[in-house]
């Protein structure tokens, strides 16, 4: 169980997390849903160790062993799709690159640079890179934005087969339906509905 207790974080005068508490399962695929700007991304960033809360505690997560998918694709314009995957893999796992490209349904696009990929393809590549990095927990911020429902469903099943716990945010009903747990949130400050 991931235990979040009394998390507090402000951006200037705006309290995004105000003594926020929640228990999240540490297995399967967990979805966080809520309006844009309610604080979901901030919560994921705290779990990943990318944002430092002013107060509160998180237990059950080692930030150094999480893989975080940013809301933006953050692809390197000068690296090909295959290189993006290879860059996060240790040398002895470089042979897995074609499998990860297949996971993203980007077979045949290994030599393509980000500028040549559509928005959906770039998102899938970013997700594959994050999943290839791996760790004890995948934290995915809008992983299927711009990806069609059918493909998103297949990739979600692919994530499930990895066996790594996943916490994701999404607005897509079809994605939320396929997750094992769903938490509906509102804010700011972030609160459980």
């Amino acid at each position: 169980m991931i235990e979040i207790r009394n998390l507090t974080l402000r951006y200037g005068d705006k309290a995004v997390l105000d003594r926020f508490s929640l228990d999240l399962p540490d297995g399967g695929i967990t979805a966080l849903s809520g309006p844009s700007g309610c604080g979901k991304t901030t919560l994921l960033r705290v779990l990943a160790g990318l944002a430092a809360p002013e107060g509160g505690t998180v237990s059950g997560v080692d930030p150094g062993r999480t893989a975080f998918l940013f809301q933006e694709d953050r692809l390197l314009p000068w690296r090909t799709a295959a290189q993006h995957i290879a860059d996060v893999l240790p040398r002895e796992r470089r042979g897995e690159v074609p499998a990860w490209l297949a996971f993203a349904e980007l077979e045949g696009e290994g030599d393509a640079y980000p500028a040549a990929l559509s928005g959906g393809m770039a998102r899938r590549l970013a997700l594959a890179r994050c999943a290839a990095l791996g760790g004890d927990l995948l934290l995915l911020d809008e992983p299927f934005a711009g990806v069609d429902e059918e493909r998103a469903g297949r990739m979600l099943e692919g994530l499930r087969q990895l066996g790594t716990p996943v916490i994701l945010t999404s607005h897509q009903g079809a994605v939320l339906e396929r997750c094992d747990d769903l938490f509906r949130l509102d804010g700011p400050p972030l609160r459980l509905l």
Partner: peptide, 12 residues
């Protein structure tokens, strides 16, 4: 800075 944050988060 987003790419630098990515490099940190992805343990480069």
């Amino acid at each position: 800075p987003q790419l630098l944050e990515l490099a940190g988060a992805y343990r480069f």
